[in-house]
Structure formats: C-alpha cells, structure tokens
Design a protein around this nucleic acid. Structure first.
Lengths: 219, 219, 219, 219
DNA sequence: CATGAATGAGTATTCATTCAT
DNA sequence: GATGAATGAATACTCATTCAT
C-alpha cells in the first residue's frame, strides 16, 4: 500500500501542530510556575502537570529543566526585544533627543511586558546557560543603539561603541531599579524618570563640552 | 600583674574563640563553595565538610543554607561598603568633579574585592532573604551619596534624592557590567571607563542647562 | 468475543494494577516493620526497602510516615470492624443475653486478627492523625451497639446512648487488657472471661434493680 | 589537713540538695515539654534548656531520654496511686457500695491530677521501658482493690482476683474514655457517670444471681 | 510518540550523646 | 561536678530523569 502524501502530510502537520501546542503549553506553564513558586521550587514534574502534559513528553521536547527555563528566557527576551526594536525603528531618522527619549520609554514599556516573570528571571534564575541569552540580549540592544548612534555621528562627541554600551547599560539599570526596587518613584513620577534618564544619556552622548567648543558656540 | 582572672577568663574565651572560629570557617567555606560549585550545588553538607566542621555544628550557628548565604552576602557587602565609605570620607570637602570621580573609582575598587564571589552572589543567589541585604546596600550607598550631594547643593541642578539614586544606580551598573560582562573594556581601558562614567554623572548632576543659562554664559 | 478493548484496557489496568501492588506492598511492609521494629524505628526509608519499592514511590503514594501508618490503622480497623459488624448482624434479632455474649466474643475474635500489629498500634502509635481513625472506630462500634440496644428498649433499663458507650468501652478494655497484658487469664480461661464480661454488661444493661422490683419479685 | 565532717557534710548536703533540685527541674521540664511539644519533638537538648540545666548535667543524672520519660511516668503514677490509695484507705471498712463508689470517684480525681500530662503519656509515649511502670500501676491498683474485696468476701459472688482485674480495668477505661474522648459526658453529667460506673461494678461483683438464690431470697 | 510509575542520589535538618575544658 | 561546643548517624523528603508499557 502506498502512503499517499495526502495521508501523510496532514498527519505530519497535525502532529507538528500538536508539538507546537505542547511546547507552547510547556513554556507557558514554566513561566507560570516560575512566577508562582519561584525558580527553586519549580520542578519539571510540576511544570508538566501544570502544562497538562506528561513528564515523559516534557523530556521529549526539552533535555531538562535548564533548557526549559532557557527557552522561557529566550522567549521573554524576544518579546522585550520586539519592543525595543519597534521603538528604534520608529525613530531611526529622528534627532538624538527624540531617539534617546524613545529608547528610555521603550525600556519602561519593556518592563511592563510581564513584570512578575521579569522579576523572577532577574532575581532568581541562575545565569548559567541562560546567561548566554541575557548577554545576547544586552549585546543585541547595544548593537541596535550603536547603529542608531552611528547615523548621528556628528551630533555625538564620543565613540559610538562605548557610547552604546554606556547608554544601554545605564537606561536598563535605571528603569530596572525603578520598576523593581523603587516602585514609588514610578507610581506618580514616571515622567520625571523618563526625563532624567533621557537627559542623563543625551548629556553624555553630546560628549565632553570642551571649553573651546563652548566658546565657539558662544561667539 | 594578677593572673587569676586570666585563668578564669580563658575558659569562657576559649569556647567563645572556638565558636568564632567555627563560624568563621563556615562563612569562609560557604564563600569558597559558592564560588567553586555555584549556589545550587552548594549544599549544607558540602559546606560543613569544606569548613572541616560537622553538619551539626553548622546548624548550631545557622538555621539553614539561606542564613549562611545571607551572612556571606552581609559580610561581602560590609567589605564593599567600607571601600565606598572610605572613598566618600576622603572627598567629603572636594568639589563635585573630584567627588564623583572618586565614587566611580571606589565602585571599581569595590568590584576588585572578591570578584568571583561578587559574580556568584550577583548572578546566582536568589534575592530572597539576602535580597534585604542587597537592597540595604543600595540604600546605604544612595544615602551616603545624597549626603555628599547636599553639601554641593548649589553646584547641582537636580533634587539630591533622585540624583543620588540615579548616580549610584548608574555607576553601579556601569562598573558591574564592565567588570563582569565586558572585561575587555576594562583590560586596557580602565581609565576611559572611569572618565566616561564620571562625565556621565557629573553632566547629569549639573542639571538641565536651561537655554537662559547657556545664553547668559554666551553673552 | 471481540478482544480489541482488552488490548487497550490492559495498559491502563496494568499500570493501575502496578500502582495497587505498590501501595499494597507499602502497607504490608509498614505493618511488618511496625511490628518488628516499633513505631519510632520505622523510618520511611526502611519501609520502602522492606516493600521492595523505592523511597520515591513511597512518597508518590503517601505524603509521609504518618499517612502510611494512618492507612495501616485504617485497614486494621476495617478488618476489626468487619468482625464486629458481622457479629452484630448475626444477632440482630437475638435476645439481649445472646447479643451481648456475641459482642464480647467478637471483641475477642477481633483481637485475634493481627495481635502483634494491634499491640504496636495501641501502645506505640501516637494518637495524632491516626487518632481520628481510632476515635472513629470507637464511635462506629458505639453506634452499632446502640442501634442493637434500641431494638431491645424494653429489656434494658438505661439510656441506650450512654449504655452503648459504657458497654463498648468496657468490653473493649476488658478484652484488650486480657489479651495484651494478661495472656495468662485467657490461656486456659477464655470461657470464664467471656462469661464474666457478658454478665457484667448484661447486668448493667438491665438497669437499676429498684428495691420495689426486688420486693415485688419476692412477693 | 583534716577535712572535718562539718566541712564535708554541709558540702555534701549542699550538693545533694542541688542534685535533687536539678533532678526536679529536669522532671518538671520534661513534663512541660512533653505537654507542649509532644513526645516526638521532646528532645533532651530542649528539655535541658527548659530546665535551665546544661545538657551535660542532664546526662549526669539520667542515662538518656527514655529514662527521663520513665521517671516522669513513675512520678505521675505515684501521684495517681496516692489518690487511689488514699481513697481505698478511707473506705477500708465501708460496705461494698460505698467502697466501689469511692474507687470510681478516685479514678475521676486521679484523672484531674495533671490531665494534659496524662493524655500525652497515654497517647504518645511508647510503652517500652515505661511499659513496666504502667503495668506496675495497674497491678498495684488491682492488688489494692483485691485486698479490699477480700474483706467483703461474703458480699461478693466472684473470685476476688478476677473481680479486681475486671473492676479496675473497667473503671479505668470508663473514666479515661470519658475524660479524654467524651468530655461532653463529664461536663454536666459527672454524677451520672459516677452512678453508672458504680452500679456496673457493684452489680458485677454481687455475682451471678442464681435463680435459686433469688428464690431463696424471695422466700 | 505519549504516558506516568518508578527510581535513587541527593538535600536539609534533627537529636541523642560525648568529651575537652 | 558542670558546661556547652561538637559530633555524625539517621531521618524525612524532593526532584530530575528513565523506561516499560
């Protein structure tokens, strides 16, 4: 008997769809359990149960707990990156002030994507295996920002590479600290933080205001 | 000189010294194991063994792994804080540029105290229990810096409280990222980072250069 | 006969049977260890080993030692209750003398079900968690006996509820004490004990022989 | 130098008094901890701490936990026995009805001596080592009662030995069950229980009312 | 492919007991 | 005799992972 493509394809597709659904359910469940129970108490058995999937199936799709968490980190980072990329795309041609403000705003938006998951990932998930992902995220953000800065080369007074690192690191740290550790700052003062962080970065990017430059400007 | 007290005292002192030695050995071992095996693989049994102390003794002095790690965090933070405090004391009366540069330098020095432990503590230790300590450290650093800024009130153009938060967070993030994730930046370029970070913060602290000010300066 | 269902069913049944076998082995082993080593020395690890089951499996089915022991208690109580219920059913319509004698005999029989386990359960098992079961057993026995007594309301001179409590408690205590602490009484004298206990209870159930009654009888 | 008796005696006495105080404190603490934490959670270290005594001293006076608990059991039994003995002495010459009623009352009184300790001892303390004590207590109670019954030989229709066993066991069980498991029975009905239990035992002790005897009495 | 029963090394923790001071 | 630091065997329990069905 010949297995006609029509008999096989659908099956394959069906099981592929099923696979994707299973993987999705597992990632969803992992994130949920991570938030609910914390990293240490998140066991593969609990995750499988929460996903409505047998423990055996979990191991069919992921070699272990670390890979599972890494996948969640990756997915979360992808979501964040989408926000950042979207923002950077928007302002590709805008002047520095606008671009930086948008970057800061995007950082704040990114922290609103899934704040609880973000917190667990940031505070409890050991950077080992997932470290690569986190690093990657940071690198990618730096690259994006550097590319932007390079189009503004004449407006900035510093090396674009270093400037991107400083800018991204700074903005990330400020928004993260504000969101996670000082919610009171954000509660009624989001605008102020946005303002301060933007000014901080823009001032820095303009570069050292050499006395000569100042004078020239003044003349 | 009468020696009788010394015949009595020593006993008490002896056992006290013994206790202290045990506790010290445990903290030492915890730090060592943390660095060597990571947080997750650091078990109380392993720590006790590494300390050359029985598991029973470990529990005589610490209610569990978390407390042990918290104590290590605390001790580490104390060491770091000593560096920061020393630096701030040095420049209490120095002008803003000098003060900020010194703060940045101190942050770099602090990262040299026990870099490997610092990394494990930062990357693998769940912020729970120990979180309090980390938060405290950050608050204390902010307070110190704010106090300094308040003596320079007329030199800075921003609210001291917020400025301290921004300054400390920024400097911490930059030095941390550089030390931990971009050692290449530091390797031959430590001076540049110091320069950039200082300029970043100082520029920010000077406050918004209102057009009027600029104009006035220009006239 | 179509066998297809049987090809599917067995799988489920197989693992169900496996589960049941594991649980059975655990209960068996618990009882055995309890008898052999006593309650305090009966550890979950030892029980699992004796059951030829991994410690992990033990915890798959029972939340801990207490639950395991409680299950053994429950099973033992069920066995005893079957004896009691059987006896009470037999004599549902029989006169008081016969019924009470049968109850006492049943109590003795019940003590023969698994005397060593009974002893350990009675003497070493902390009444906590399992207490509920023991209480329940007693209540159930009282209820059964009270129901019987209520059908003989005109033969007895006391409140059925209190009478049931007194009767059951008394019979239980006498048979238990005799079996466990005074085996010499039973050895060649089982009949005497049966006789005495029955007379004790029957006399009590007849109620206070008011002087008038005696007198009237005498006249 | 001669150590005069006067120098030694006091010391000895002093330390003997001290010893007794230590032992007393330990027993007191054991009872307290037993009540508060239950048998299983009552550790020698905790007991020593509660007694204000070093763990070393505990082992100076008691070979281990079991001995400590056994001593508490013994002391408790002594207290109970004092109540029973006092009661029996009171009614040595009183008629059967009075004697038995007093015995039942004494059993209830005994249960009021230290009810919480009694409960822990009865429900949680493994009968091993302490078993001897409990058995002894029961035997002694039987002996006392038998001696009493023997002085009433002509009033009772049963073998004194067996009768004592039945009477003591019965009364003990009824009062215990009522006090521990059915406090509602006692709360407002203490008198009724006393009445019922007494009647139960007295009726039993009178022995089988052989028809002939009844008749003879009637004639 | 899915299932879930089974595994057992590993973890935190307790506690009776010893012994140097 | 008193002290209490130290001990370490033993215990309850978890969890990543395997594998027969």
């Amino acid at each position: 008997m010949v297995l006609r493509p029509t008999t096989v394809r659908p099956r394959k597709t069906a099981s592929q769809a099923r696979s994707r659904a299973t993987v999705g359910a597992l990632l969803e469940a992992t994130a949920r359990i991570l938030v609910r129970d914390g990293y240490e108490r998140a066991s593969t058995n609990r995750i499988a149960a929460a996903a409505g999937v047998s423990i055996g199936s979990l191991y069919q799709y992921f070699p272990g707990k670390e890979a599972l968490v890494a996948a969640v980190v990756e997915r979360h980072n992808r979501d964040l990156m989408a926000v950042i990329e979207g923002a950077m795309a928007e302002v590709a041609d805008a002047p520095l002030e606008v671009g930086v403000r948008r970057l800061v705003a995007a950082a704040l938006e990114a922290h609103a994507v899934d704040p609880e998951l973000h917190r667990v990932l940031a505070e409890q998930t050991p950077r080992a295996g997932a470290l690569a992902d986190v690093e990657l995220f940071h690198r990618r953000a730096c690259d994006l920002f550097r590319a932007y800065l390079e189009t503004k080369r004449d407006e900035i007074g510093v090396d674009a590479e270093l400037a991107a690192f400083v800018g991204v690191t700074t903005v990330e740290a400020l928004t993260h600290a504000a969101v996670i550790h000082r919610p009171e700052i954000l509660a009624h003062n989001r605008e102020a933080l946005l303002e301060e962080a933007s000014r901080l970065v823009i001032g820095y990017l303009r570069g050292p205001e050499a006395p000569t430059r100042r004078l020239r400007a003044a003349v």
